[in-house]
């Protein structure tokens, strides 16, 4: 086996660690993206019985974004099994309780319910902020592109940038500034 082929063999079967910044991302669209990396479905050698999934480290999961008023419309159901044990939790209440759970459940529910699912979930590491243990951080060799750009707030621009941005309208001359 030549040196090149040997390295190719390693590279093919090595588990790669990916980084994903969840700030301002929809967790449900992100789940569809992340599950491919977790299951290894982005690899040409993929097969359901081939254990070729990668690790994904998700940071800033507390800053995920939902469209419109979905934070108060989406409901998570749980039943303890006892009579009257049903409970309904709104997405924002669940997120307040644990800022990683909405994304974790989204990834879990995006995958088929088979025996591999629990093992695939083990390769997902979610952190509510950017504080990742350095032993995990040192493994990372790829970053997954965000689905939507993180919007920049108006107070994050400098005074000069705001002033020198091209203006669509000028205020009329009889306008009183308030």
């Amino acid at each position: 086996m030549s040196v090149l082929k040997r390295v190719q063999q390693w590279a093919t079967f090595a588990r790669i660690w990916h980084l994903y910044d969840a700030a301002w991302q929809n967790p449900f669209y992100s789940a569809e993206l992340l599950k491919k990396y977790l299951m290894g479905a982005h690899k040409p050698i993929y097969h359901p019985m081939n254990d070729c999934g990668d690790h994904v480290i998700v940071i800033n999961s507390s800053d995920i974004a939902l469209p419109g008023d979905e934070w108060k419309k989406r409901v998570y159901f749980h039943h303890t099994g006892y009579p009257g044990g049903a409970s309904w939790t709104l997405a924002w209440e669940l997120h307040k309780k644990d800022p990683t759970l909405v994304l974790k459940k989204a990834v879990y529910n995006s995958m088929d319910g088979n025996l591999q699912r629990r093992y695939t979930m083990e390769r997902l590491h979610i952190f509510p902020d950017a504080n990742v243990p350095s032993n995990l951080l040192s493994n990372i060799s790829n970053q997954i592109k965000q689905l939507r750009p993180k919007p920049k707030r108006l107070d994050e621009y400098t005074e000069k940038e705001i002033q020198e941005f091209p203006k669509l309208i000028d205020l009329p001359k009889n306008h009183i500034l308030r």
Binding site: A23, W24, A65, L66, G68, D69, W71, K72, W92
Partner: peptide
């Protein structure tokens, strides 16, 4: 207050 403190985005086609 409440759910309003979490990040949200909008679809312009709505």
């Amino acid at each position: 207050y409440g759910w309003k403190k979490y990040n949200k985005y909008f679809d312009e086609s709505t």
